[in-house]
Design a protein around this nucleic acid. Structure first.
Lengths: 235, 235
DNA sequence: CATGGCGCTTGATCTAAATCAAACCTGGCC
DNA sequence: GGCCAGGTTTGATTTAGATCAAGCGCCATG
C-alpha cells in the first residue's frame, strides 16, 4: 500500500478512532489498485471478501433485475463500501462500478471482523457508520416514493449547490457525474432528466453541459420544498 | 413492566446475547403501554427518547411530505424501532403508528446507549440489527425502483405465502394488514392495488376480502421473477 | 336490528413518465 | 483535423399509474 494514501484513509470517520496497532493490522493486509472507468468492482450476490475504500475517483452502487438497472448510491472519496455486507458476511445486495479512473483500497473482510471483535472504538465507529448508511437509504426511499421527478431534480440541485459552496440566491455547480448516472439515481430516464431540467428553466435553472447556473434559488426552493429529513446528509 | 412479556422481549435477537444484569438494566427503566389502533407513537423530526419494542399488535413506519404520505415498513411482533435513531441520538426520519391494538415497551434511549458502551455482546447484536435494517431498506428501494406495481404485488404474495406456510403450487394467505396499508408500502394507491390484484387473476390469484388464494404459483413465479436479493428477508 | 362510516372495487379520465426514434453535440482517438 | 462513438436533447407516441367519482359491502355501535 502506498504510504501516500494511508493518512487520507486514517482520517475517515470509520478509522479515526482506531488504535494505531489495529489500524496497522487493517492496512498491512490491504492492497491498493487503480481501475479505469466502468470496471465492475463488486457483483451483487457475491460474497463480501473485502471492505473497499474509494481513495480517488468515483464509484456507483447499482442493482439490476431482468434487464432493468438502477443506481442506488454514488460514492465520492474518501468513503467505504459495503460495510453491512462485510460485517455480517452476507452476499452483496448491490454491485459497484467505477465511473471514472479510481484508486481503491481492498481490506480483507476477515481482518475487519477481527479488529471489530477486538477494538471497542472500532465497534462504535462501525455502529455509527451503519446507522448513517441506513438513514441515507431511508432518505433515498422517501425521496423516490414521495416526490415527482421534477421535485427530485430540484432538490438535488439545491443540495449540490450547498455542497459546492453556492450562495443563498445564486449559485453555480458542476455536475459531479454524467447526467445519465444522475438520472438513474434520481429514478428516471436520461430523456426525462433532460425534460425535467427544461421544466426548471422558469425557476432560474440554466444548463450548459455539466455546468448548471441557479439564478433564482428562492423560487426554486418554493417548488422543491426541501426538508432536512430527506435532503440533509448530515441530519 | 408485566413479567409476562419479559421472556418474549428477552428472546429477541437484539437482547438474547445480553448479560442478565445488562438486560435487567434495560427492563428496569422501561415501561409498557397498550395503545388502540391509529395512535401515533413517533413523529418524524422528533428526538429519539425511547427505543420502542412492539410486543403485540402491529405498527406502521411511515413518512409524509407536503400532503403526501408513504409507508416505509410494517412491523410485526416482537420487533424494535427505531434503533438507528436511538443509537446515534439523531432525529427520527420516520413516524410510527399502531395499525391495531398494540402493546409496546419503551426503553429509554440513554439506557440503551449506556448498555451499548458497556456490553460487548450487545454492541455486536446492535451492529447486526443495524446491518439488517439497512439491507432491508436497500431491498425495498430495489423493489420500488426496479419493478412495476403488478410485479411488486406478485412478489409480495409469494413472500407472504412462504411466510404463512403455503405449498409450492397452491396456497392461501390472510393479508396481515389492511389493503390500503399494503398498497402504500408497495408504492401505489388502493385503487391501483385493486386493479393489480385483478390483473393477477389469470395467474391463479383469487381474492376474498383479506383472504387470498394462489392456485398456480408456477405461473405467478414466472411473472414475478423473485430473487433472494430483493425478496428474501433472511438473505 | 338498523344505521353510519370506512374500506374496497369499479369506471372514467387525466397525467407523469417511459419508450422509441432521430438529430445534434462533444470529446477522444487516429 | 477529421471521424466515430457515446451522451444528450427533442419530438411523437404509448403506457402505467394517479385522480376523481360513485356505489357496494362489511363491521361496529347504538
Amino acid at each position: 500500500m502506498r504510504s501516500d494514501d494511508v493518512p487520507e484513509i486514517r482520517e475517515l470517520t470509520l478509522f479515526r478512532a482506531l488504535a494505531d496497532d489495529a489500524f496497522e493490522t487493517l492496512i498491512r493486509g490491504a492492497y491498493l489498485q487503480t481501475f479505469p472507468p466502468t470496471v465492475e468492482l463488486i457483483r451483487e450476490g457475491d460474497s463480501p471478501d473485502f471492505l473497499h475504500v474509494l481513495v480517488e475517483g468515483g464509484v456507483e452502487l447499482f442493482s439490476g433485475w431482468h434487464r432493468r438497472e438502477t443506481t442506488l448510491s454514488m460514492l465520492a472519496p474518501v468513503s467505504t463500501f459495503i460495510l453491512a455486507a462485510t460485517i455480517t458476511d452476507r452476499p452483496y445486495l448491490m454491485s459497484a462500478r467505477t465511473v471514472s479512473k479510481s484508486r481503491v483500497a481492498l481490506i480483507p473482510s476477515e481482518d475487519v471482523r477481527t479488529v471489530f471483535d477486538a477494538d471497542r472504538d472500532f465497534a462504535n465507529a462501525i455502529v455509527n457508520e451503519l446507522a448513517d448508511c441506513f438513514r441515507a437509504s431511508i432518505k433515498h426511499a422517501k425521496n423516490v416514493k414521495l416526490r415527482s421527478s421534477v421535485e427530485r431534480l430540484a432538490n438535488y440541485l439545491l443540495c449540490e449547490v450547498a455542497a459546492q459552496g453556492g450562495g443563498s440566491e445564486e449559485g453555480q455547480i458542476t455536475l459531479p457525474y454524467e447526467k445519465r448516472l444522475i438520472a438513474s439515481w434520481l429514478g428516471m430516464t436520461p430523456e426525462n432528466l433532460s425534460r425535467a431540467f427544461g421544466s426548471l428553466r422558469p425557476y432560474g435553472v440554466k444548463v450548459e453541459g455539466a455546468l448548471v447556473h441557479l439564478s433564482d434559488m428562492s423560487s426554486l426552493r418554493r417548488l422543491a420544498k426541501p426538508t432536512p429529513l430527506i435532503d440533509d446528509p448530515a441530519s
